[in-house]
Amino acid sequence: MRMSMFMCKQTQPLLNMPSGGGLNLQVLRPPLQKERVVVVMGATGTGKSRLSINLATRFPAEIVNSDKIQVYEGLDVVTNKITEEEMCGVPHHLLGTINPNSDFTANDFRHVASVAVKSISARKKLPIIVGGSNSYIEALIDNENYECCFLWVDVSLPVLNSFVSKRVDRMVDVGMVDEVRNMLNLAADIDYSRGIRRAIGVPEFDRYFRLEPFIDDEERAKLLEEVISDIKNNTRKLARKQLEKIYRLRNIKGWKLHRLDATDVFRKRGKEADEAWDRLVAGPSSVIVSRFLYDVSPKVCGKVAAIRSAMAAAASH
């Protein structure tokens, strides 16, 4: 179902790690500073999960999922969750753990994710926050005093649109229709504004399942084609919306985002695509994270940064 470029290989750090059994993040941060975190951002389908695994097999790290649909239990195909095999043994937090009927808000995410970050840091590992839900990321960063390294995996929209359309076709091939059918209970009114039912690929099937028993094979195939087209269109709209939020975080809020252009990766296949990924995304990201961890100058984001800016402005008057 997913891109074949996922590979579980333990890579060596680009910089020498301190001796004594691994990277001790405590010695890398200045006194009284809170946790250092790496945030992997990008539109749907750009390879955020793959990059997070690349980094977590290079640095001692654990991953905190920040996708607002993948936090829910169930619908693994529809939500395109990373598989156990693709995790390469890296611990993941907030992935498929929330009751699918609940409404897990950005504020809920902030509370739970901040606890996960503290726990990961306390075990001297690097928290990597990864997902396409920028409202979740923003809620966490704005309310916590973290030192942040933002990695933005970007793919040109025409190339990405083609990829996500093919990904929807693969999802259908591996059982998306039956997965949604088994989850929905059409005997009752369904609220598609809460929980996992908000996922693209669920509400689009409502009309199909309600009409399915009453139409012939030809009509059913035509209706299914329409549903799949709607899912592709809505996924493309989601990608554009996610990009708009990323631009706002960079241009309006002033977040320093390290942009990694993966467009050329998606234009290639097989070994050439893997080599392009390493050259354009995984390799540069590892260098950026190495510098982030070993540079002891603070890069504070969130409330503290805003407070310092306000203090500086006040002092100038």
Rank of each mutant, 00 (worst) to 15 (best):
S4I: 05
P13T: 09
G20W: 06
R29F: 03
P30C: 04
P30L: 08
R36Y: 03
G45F: 02
T46C: 08
S49M: 02
N54G: 04
P60D: 02
D67P: 06
V71F: 08
V77W: 02
I82S: 01
T83Y: 02
M87D: 01
V90T: 13
F109T: 06
I120P: 00
G131N: 07
G131V: 10
I137H: 12
L140R: 02
C148D: 13
L160N: 12
F163V: 13
V168T: 09
M171C: 09
D173I: 05
G175K: 15
D178T: 13
N182D: 14
M183F: 15
N185P: 11
L186S: 08
A188K: 11
Y192M: 03
R197Q: 06
A199K: 10
I200A: 07
E204A: 07
F205R: 01
R207G: 00
S229F: 07
K241G: 11
K241H: 10
I246Y: 06
Y247L: 15
L257G: 10
L260Y: 15
R267I: 02
K268I: 02
K268M: 08
K268T: 04
K271N: 11
E272K: 07
D274A: 00
E275T: 13
R279L: 07
R279P: 07
R279A: 15
P284T: 15
S285K: 10
I288G: 12
R291K: 07
F292I: 06
S297W: 03
K299C: 04
C301Q: 15
A310M: 09
M311Q: 05
A313T: 10
A314R: 04
S316V: 09
